[in-house]
């Protein structure tokens, strides 16, 4: 790559800039100073560690490096996303299964159509993007699902009492949940490149790749992310809403 490197000194400067929001927070008593400092330090440390880990992984044979890191990413994502639906039974195994299946599916497509070679340098970063976005969408879906089920409890009971099956009684909720989970991605896709250049494309361009080549990568990535996000949110929602009902078509109060 022909991009210039960032020296340790210039890196230090960007960290110093963090003290601007910290002092603002102090002046206006926003009570955010600790959080800002803590999350900045944490972010920097995490990134450096990841840098070393990636270097290590890229030196391993592809199978091992990819296998190891994709497994770690999937598990961390599943733990993180399923925390948003703590009260729902089987939420972790279901989320884990959905994310894994989606990742395997998307990865196979990439390899099958030759978008990327089976090398850790390529597979790991873009898998990270797919898994990360799926994690966020699943988290949103779970949060929404729980919220809807407590908010709409009365209407679900009314629907059941009128002879609706759990499926029929939750139709509205499932729709609203999926809309909420997918809208950030749909909106993002609509304005992609206009407001903010996607992170990967920015990276490629900074790294010296021509914009038109960067765009091709971005199309593959953006659509892959969109597909996996949609599939993940739908599968998780459709697999888990049923746990709000028992086999007698009665609503179970999971939130209490």
């Amino acid at each position: 790559m022909e991009g210039n490197e960032i020296s340790n000194l210039s890196l230090l400067f960007i960290i110093v800039f963090v003290f601007i929001p910290v002092s603002l927070s102090y002046w206006f008593s926003l009570d955010l100073s600790k959080t800002i400092i803590w999350s900045s330090i944490r972010g920097v440390a995490q990134l450096f560690i990841i840098g070393y880990v990636l270097t290590f992984l890229f030196d391993l044979p592809s199978w091992q490096g990819i296998g190891l890191w994709v497994t770690v990413m999937v598990i961390v994502a599943a733990i993180n996303a399923s925390r948003k639906g703590r009260n729902i039974p089987y939420v972790f195994p279901v989320v884990l299964m959905v994310i894994s299946l989606t990742e395997v599916f998307i990865l196979s497509l990439w390899l099958l159509f030759g978008y990327i070679p089976f090398s850790a340098e390529k597979v790991i970063p873009i898998s990270g993007m797919v898994i990360g976005n799926s994690m966020i969408a699943i988290g949103l879906a779970l949060e929404r699902l729980q919220h809807q089920f407590s908010e709409e409890k009365g209407r679900i009971l009314a629907a059941l009492s009128l002879g609706a099956t759990p499926n029929q009684a939750s139709l509205q909720i499932i729709r609203k949940t999926l809309k909420a989970a997918l809208i950030p991605n749909i909106d993002g896709l609509k304005t992609i490149g206009l407001v903010q250049l996607p992170g990967m494309m920015t990276g490629l361009i900074l790294g010296g790749v021509s914009p038109l080549d960067a765009v091709r990568y971005q199309i593959v990535i953006s659509l892959s992310i969109f597909v996996s996000v949609a599939v993940c949110a739908m599968m998780v929602t459709l697999l888990l809403y049923r746990f709000y009902f028992n086999d007698k078509m009665q609503l179970i109060d999971l939130n209490s």
Partner: peptide, 14 residues
Amino acid sequence: RCEIGMVFQSAYLF
């Protein structure tokens, strides 16, 4: 549930 119909304390309309 159809044969034993119920009207709730709140209307719970859709």
